[in-house]
């Protein structure tokens, strides 16, 4: 069973502990700016939305990489960046229509969610059910896939 990171908008309190856990796990510092998950605030709607890569099937980032530096972790299904191969050209950062792969100025390479190898720290720390790591089919990822399809330049090619 492939599991996915499920981000629920109704349960997020905006505490940002996920950002702290993520940056600490990956960068060794508590710095939300270096987190691969981001909580966006919507004051008009009184809502907080946790947002990160959903490991989409289209894998725009992986397709766009000129040096084969992004690969699929066969255990988790996550698209991961090889630090050894990434040259920092940033093409993936404009290719991903979700904006969930980002340039890290400190390292000169890109970073994205890697599901922490199958044990996502954001889920572990989340005090509410806003972040869960569950069966991919139950995550309502259909919506995300729909938008991926709308963006796809070669829509008919998917069928």
């Amino acid at each position: 069973m492939v599991k996915a990171l499920y981000m629920s908008i109704s349960d997020c309190t905006g505490c940002q502990q996920c950002e702290m856990a993520c940056s600490y796990e990956h960068e060794g510092v508590f710095n939300p700016a270096k987190s691969r998950i981001k909580v966006f605030n919507f004051p008009e709607e009184g809502r907080n939305v946790p947002y990160s890569c959903t490991q989409c099937a289209d894998a725009w980032c992986m397709q766009a990489c000129p040096v084969d530096a992004i690969y699929i972790n066969t255990k988790t299904g996550a698209k991961e960046v090889s630090d050894a191969l990434c040259v920092g050209c940033k093409v993936c950062t404009i290719a991903c229509p979700f904006g969930t792969i980002n340039y890290n100025h400190a390292t000169g390479k890109v970073i994205k969610c890697d599901l922490c190898g199958g044990d996502p720290k954001c889920v572990e720390i989340c005090p509410t059910p806003a972040l869960t790591y569950i069966d991919a089919e139950q995550t309502g990822m259909a919506k995300m896939r729909l938008w991926a399809k709308k963006t796809d330049a070669g829509q008919a090619a998917q069928s």
């Binding site: 404009i94 991903c96 938008w147 963006t151």
Partner: peptide, 15 residues
Amino acid sequence: TDHIGVLRGLIQSNV
């Protein structure tokens, strides 16, 4: 640079 790809998403999804 942060979340810059959403510009592509916003334009190309024609939302």
